[in-house]
Measured scan of single mutants.
Amino acid sequence: TEEYTYTDKEKADRAAKEWANRGYTVTVTQDGPTYRVRVG
């Protein structure tokens, strides 16, 4: 499991979509002003 942190919702959504397109399980959680994209 890897985790990426973004401050921009659009970038987080785009990253999540790209990982999902590659067949990974993706979870996006909002943590205050940041968005965490957990992959795998």
Rank of each mutant, 00 (worst) to 15 (best):
A16H: 03
R22H: 12
Y35D: 00
K17G: 07
E10V: 10
E3M: 07
R14G: 07
R36G: 03
E2T: 15
T29P: 00
V39K: 03
E2A: 14
Y6R: 00
G32S: 02
G32Q: 01
V39R: 04
E18W: 15
D13K: 09
V39H: 02
D31K: 05
W19N: 03
T27F: 07
T29Y: 14
T34G: 06
A15T: 05
T27V: 12
E3V: 11
Y4A: 04
T7K: 08
P33T: 09
T1D: 10
E3H: 06
A12G: 02
A12M: 04
E3F: 08
R14Q: 14
E18G: 05
E18Q: 08
Q30N: 07
Y35C: 01
A20F: 12
D8M: 05
E18T: 05
G40D: 13
G23A: 02
V26M: 01
D13P: 00
V26N: 01
E2G: 12
T7Y: 13
T7Q: 10
T5G: 04
V26C: 05
A12F: 02
K17Q: 13
V37I: 08
P33M: 08
T1M: 13
V39F: 04
T5C: 14
R14T: 11
G23Y: 02
D31T: 07
T34R: 09
D13W: 14
V28W: 03
K11E: 15
Y35T: 04
E18S: 07
T25Q: 12
Y4M: 06
D8Y: 04
R38G: 05
A12T: 03
N21C: 15
T27E: 11
E3N: 05
E10S: 10
D8A: 05
D13E: 14
R22Q: 14
V39C: 04
T25N: 11
G40V: 15
A15W: 06
G32I: 01
W19I: 05
T25I: 13
A16Y: 05
E2K: 15
A15M: 09
A12W: 01
A20D: 05
K11Y: 07
T34L: 15
V28C: 09
A12S: 03
T1L: 12
G40I: 14
V28M: 07
T7M: 11
P33D: 14
Q30G: 06
G23R: 02
G32R: 01
E10T: 09
T29H: 09
K11R: 10
D31W: 07
T27S: 10
D13M: 15
W19S: 03
E18N: 07
P33K: 07
G32M: 01
V26W: 01
G23I: 01
A16V: 06
K17N: 12
N21S: 14
E10I: 10
Y4D: 03
R36V: 15
R36E: 03
D31G: 03
Y4W: 10
Y24L: 06
E10Q: 10
G23T: 00
V28F: 04
E2N: 14
G32H: 03
A20Y: 11
Y24H: 07
E3A: 05
Y6F: 14
A20E: 14
A15H: 06
D31V: 12
K11H: 12
E3G: 06
E2M: 15
T29V: 13
D8V: 06
